[in-house]
């Protein structure tokens, strides 16, 4: 079993690898742009059209999740970051060099997960806090605002950032299973976009049961101070998503351990 010092060494190496390719840097930039940029756009639109909203919309208006909406677009960017972190090793063949340096496969995957978890957590929390704070500033004076000092609001913003982190790890696991960038990203996008559409064709009473297990509605639950009807509460949603990530990573790891890494087969 790997000692702590070697785990530290391989994690440091993965961090160097993460920050020295353009795809990760671009992914981070797009995540910032989408979460904060779309947050500014959405909150500005709400502010300018506030007097035209129906009384029902006004009564159910949530200043927290509306300011965090951009993260539901940024989830695709973090998905790409997570996927490419492993699939680029396969497309370039560098996985062979990587495994020659770190032949202990569990240590390698743990190191990659640590790097991905820490970077996307910092990134996710940064963009969500920024989008929230900027959004409330834009709402100020016209639209009701929320305060970060409120525990429920704070939880929503933190879990919105964690949602992006968990999706990056989920995408990483898909990448490790499929070993091809295009295939892994397609499956990732399908899970987030196509699965809800399939659920739409189910009978109404099944629909509610099915849809709340779907990752993007888990995301909505996580970033809403009050759970929408027929969905999980914020913490339950977090645990369901965490269970998906752990299960997918476990499958990915078993396959990774069993497969040959040398040949391109």
């Amino acid at each position: 079993m790997a000692s702590d010092s070697t785990l530290m060494a391989s994690t440091r190496a993965e961090w160097i690898k993460f920050r020295t390719v353009r795809s990760s840097v671009m992914g981070v930039a797009v995540t910032v742009l989408l979460t904060i940029g779309l947050g500014v756009l959405i909150t500005t639109l709400v502010r300018t059209h506030w007097d035209q909203l129906s009384p029902l919309r006004v009564a159910t208006f949530d200043p927290v999740s509306s300011s965090l909406r951009g993260s539901l677009f940024a989830q695709f960017a973090v998905g790409v970051i997570g996927t490419l972190f492993i699939t680029s090793e396969y497309t370039s063949g560098s996985i062979r060099t990587t495994l020659t340096a770190v032949p202990n496969r569990i240590r390698l995957i743990v190191s990659k997960c640590i790097v991905l978890f820490i970077t996307t957590l910092i990134l996710g929390e940064f963009v969500c806090f920024a989008a929230f704070l900027i959004g409330q500033r834009i709402y100020l004076g016209v639209v009701p605002t929320a305060s970060i000092a409120n525990g429920t609001v704070l939880r929503s913003v933190i879990l919105a950032g964690l949602y992006l982190t968990l999706l990056a790890l989920f995408a990483f696991a898909l990448g490790l299973i499929l070993r091809q960038s295009a295939a892994a990203i397609s499956v990732f996008v399908s899970v987030l976009l196509i699965v809800p559409i399939i659920g739409f064709f189910f009978p109404q009473n099944w629909q509610n049961d099915f849809m709340r297990f779907e990752p993007s509605s888990l995301g909505v639950s996580m970033e809403s101070p009050f759970a929408p009807s027929n969905t999980f509460g914020a913490w339950s949603a977090t645990f369901v998503l965490l269970a998906y990530v752990v299960a997918t990573l476990a499958i990915a790891f078993v396959l990774f351990q069993r497969r040959d890494a040398g040949s391109n087969q």
């Binding site: 060494a9 690898k17 020295t20 390719v21 370039s92 063949g93 560098s94 060099t97 020659t100």
Partner: peptide
């Protein structure tokens, strides 16, 4: 084994630096 088994977007120095760190 295979000279091309290196990420094409990384510089040679960074590639070696990561290997050294590991």
């Amino acid at each position: 084994l295979d000279a091309k088994a290196v990420h094409p977007g990384r510089t040679a120095r960074n590639h070696l630096r990561a290997l050294a760190a590991s």
